[in-house]
Lab assay of single mutants.
Amino acid sequence: EPLWIRPDAPSRCTWQLGRPASESPHHHTAPAKSPKILPDILKKIGDTPMVRINKIGKKFGLKCELLAKCEFFNAGGSVKDRISLRMIEDAERDGTLKPGDTIIEPTSGNTGIGLALAAAVRGYRCIIVMPEKMSSEKVDVLRALGAEIVRTPTNARFDSPESHVGVAWRLKNEIPNSHILDQYRNASNPLAHYDTTADEILQQCDGKLDMLVASVGTGGTITGIARKLKEKCPGCRIIGVDPEGSILAEPEELNQTEQTTYEVEGIGYDFIPTVLDRTVVDKWFKSNDEEAFTFARMLIAQEGLLCGGSAGSTVAVAVKAAQELQEGQRCVVILPDSVRNYMTKFLSDRWMLQKGFLKEEDLTEKKPWWWHLRVQELGLSAPLTVLPTITCGHTIEILREKGFDQAPVVDEAGVILGMVTLGNMLSSLLAGKVQPSDQVGKVIYKQFKQIRLTDTLGRLSHILEMDHFALVVHEQIQYHSTGKSSQRQMVFGVVTAIDLLNFVAAQERDQK
């Protein structure tokens, strides 16, 4: 057995438009009618409502009807409940999964919650491996369901041993009777949507819809739904939504950006999952974080739909894509998950301010006199920076000697690579993860907040409520011999709460 199987392995699926269902090699399930009293909570997966979006479509000038398939009504709160249950049931049916076995899954959280929910009911041990950027709410729900959680670096490539995929496979090879159901490759993922989600949409719309818009992560949702719609409703256009920084969209030119990270969760990847059939997507749109969270908040405030950030991405694209539809036509959007997962993220004004998705003037509360002053007023001194090749031991000596707790790590040209902190280095040394002679590049981390000289002290204040420091950066445009230009970030300084307090105190003292 291989040590790991690539999540982007070539698909062996034989589905073709027009091929009889009787030739399918898979076990198919028909939607079942729910009894009045459910035998367990797993029976509350599927049969989610279709809700008309009344205000947002009109606000953006849509002539067509805009409908939302509300997947956050599933038992675990997301569309991923469907595939989690289906993968477990299919693994039980073919004898792969037996009582007492362990389920391991690399996930952005929602599939993990679905699997942990099913594992709690069915009696399996469950280990979820997820990147650090995923919300604390997801972690809390997983723990409450009895799952064990392993976190991995957000910026690790999918084929790196440190990625959530790599760590999951390492655990599988170490733990007896453990299984990775593997949402990236498992046919049960798109089949769950082909058999149930798509049929529900067709039934709820009486077979009449002209466009379907869905955000894409593993691709199982859009693949399964689109294949069924292509068979039953061939005139329906399928629109895929991919965040900026991901590479799922086609044509490839759409993916060209210097951005590699994004805040919206559960969609987009740096590889093409095996289950994603991009041939059934008629057109791709890219979405960005700001519009995703703005539209998610709009869905909550104006439509009462308590959905997550990827739902915002989907609707932001839908109001663009559906401009081509006329009166009497219908566009369906998939709202994948609930706001429950993001209470401390985009639902929080403070978080939105820190990330730059909300401006101070958007909030009406009274601010102190210094709130709208610029960061450049602080008069920061030149920063202490270190090269990635310097040793951890030497870096600790320098920081202690100069009285700093942290320093930016830059390359020879001064471009920011990340940050090192005294606390992080000492804990890594004590844990045996690094040696004093190791290069400081081994303990770089990139989960820090950046701020510009033109940003306000109010925004800085919000950042420092949650973080010990902020890195002050400025952009530099560099022209190359080819005539092309590129933008790079340079370090201007490091600012802490002490710097802000000293500035405010000094100004008030001078005024007296």
Rank of each mutant, 00 (worst) to 15 (best):
I238V: 14
I272W: 05
I451C: 01
P436H: 13
D242F: 01
K283I: 06
K355Y: 10
E253I: 11
R509V: 15
I272C: 10
T496Q: 11
S437G: 14
T274A: 01
K449C: 14
D411L: 09
H462L: 11
I398N: 09
G393E: 15
N288I: 12
G308A: 04
T395M: 05
R330V: 11
E291W: 09
Q302V: 08
Q354M: 10
L305E: 03
K366D: 11
C331H: 01
L501V: 10
V494G: 04
S338E: 11
N341C: 03
L306E: 06
S461F: 12
I267G: 04
L276V: 08
D270I: 01
P243I: 06
C307T: 15
D270L: 04
P436E: 11
H468S: 13
D270H: 07
G240R: 05
K283P: 09
V495T: 11
L384A: 01
L353K: 15
T261C: 08
E365V: 10
S486D: 11
N288G: 15
L426S: 13
Q354G: 04
Y479L: 13
E258S: 08
K446C: 12
I267N: 01
H462K: 14
G328V: 10
Q476I: 13
V420T: 14
A301W: 07
K402I: 07
H468A: 05
E360S: 11
F492E: 10
E263M: 09
V472E: 11
V375G: 05
T385S: 06
A301N: 11
L373H: 15
D289K: 04
V415W: 11
E360L: 10
H474F: 09
E377R: 04
T456M: 13
H372W: 12
L471P: 14
T274G: 06
M490F: 12
Q439M: 05
G268R: 01
F285S: 10
C331R: 05
T389N: 13
T344V: 01
I463A: 01
K367R: 12
H468M: 15
V473K: 07
D289W: 05
Q354F: 11
A506V: 07
A382E: 15
D349P: 05
D411C: 12
R452L: 12
Q476C: 08
C307L: 01
L422D: 08
M298T: 15
T364L: 08
R374S: 08
Y262S: 01
L335T: 01
S481M: 14
I300R: 01
Q435Y: 15
R350E: 06
I390P: 01
D499I: 01
E265C: 01
L501Y: 11
M490L: 11
G483K: 15
L387T: 14
T294G: 15
S246L: 01
T274V: 04
W351H: 07
F503T: 13
E250N: 13
V420I: 12
F492I: 13
K449A: 13
A382T: 14
F285C: 07
A292G: 08
V443Y: 13
L417Q: 11
D455L: 09
L325R: 01
K286T: 01
E291H: 01
H372S: 09
H394V: 15
T421R: 14
K433L: 11
R452A: 08
S428K: 01
P388W: 10
D405W: 14
G245T: 06
S437T: 04
A321W: 03
T482L: 12
E253F: 08
V241S: 12
A311Y: 10
K433C: 13
N424L: 15
H480R: 09
M466G: 14
Q323S: 06
F492V: 11
S381F: 15
T482W: 07
S287P: 06
T389M: 14
S428R: 04
T294F: 13
Q256A: 12
T260S: 12
E361V: 10
K512G: 15
L254Y: 08
Q329N: 07
S287Y: 05
K449R: 11
L248N: 03
L387C: 08
H474L: 08
I398Q: 06
Q478F: 14
V410A: 10
D349S: 09
A431D: 12
P383Y: 07
G268C: 01
P243V: 09
F285G: 08
I272T: 09
V504N: 12
W370G: 01
K446V: 11
L335P: 01
D242W: 03
Q406I: 08
G441H: 07
S437H: 15
L430Y: 08
S313R: 04
V333Q: 03
M298S: 03
A296P: 03
H372V: 11
K320C: 08
K512W: 04
H468I: 13
I444Q: 09
V317F: 05
K442D: 13
V281L: 15
C331Q: 01
I398T: 14
K345L: 01
E327R: 14
V409Y: 08
V409M: 12
E365F: 08
V440K: 04
L500A: 13
S428D: 15
S338L: 01
D499V: 01
N255D: 03
A407L: 14
A296K: 01
L248V: 03
I477A: 13
L422K: 07
C331Y: 01
L426Y: 15
G483N: 01
G483S: 12
K442F: 11
V415P: 03
M466F: 12
Q323I: 05
I267F: 01
D455I: 12
T257V: 10
E377K: 14
L426D: 05
S428G: 15
E244K: 10
M419A: 12
F469S: 10
L248F: 05
A301Y: 13
P251D: 03
E377S: 10
K402S: 14
L422C: 12
I334L: 07
E397M: 10
L417P: 10
Q259A: 01
R488M: 12
E324F: 12
H474K: 05
L430I: 12
G393V: 14
V264W: 01
N341L: 01
H394C: 04
R509E: 11
G493P: 10
I334R: 04
K512L: 11
L422R: 12
V264Q: 10
L306F: 08
G483T: 13
R459G: 09
L305H: 04
S428E: 15
L457G: 01
G379L: 01
G441R: 15
Y269E: 06
S481H: 14
V386Y: 09
L363A: 01
E365G: 11
E253K: 10
E253H: 01
K484W: 14
Q439N: 11
D499W: 01
Q435W: 09
F503K: 01
I247R: 08
A249D: 01
Q439T: 14
F285W: 04
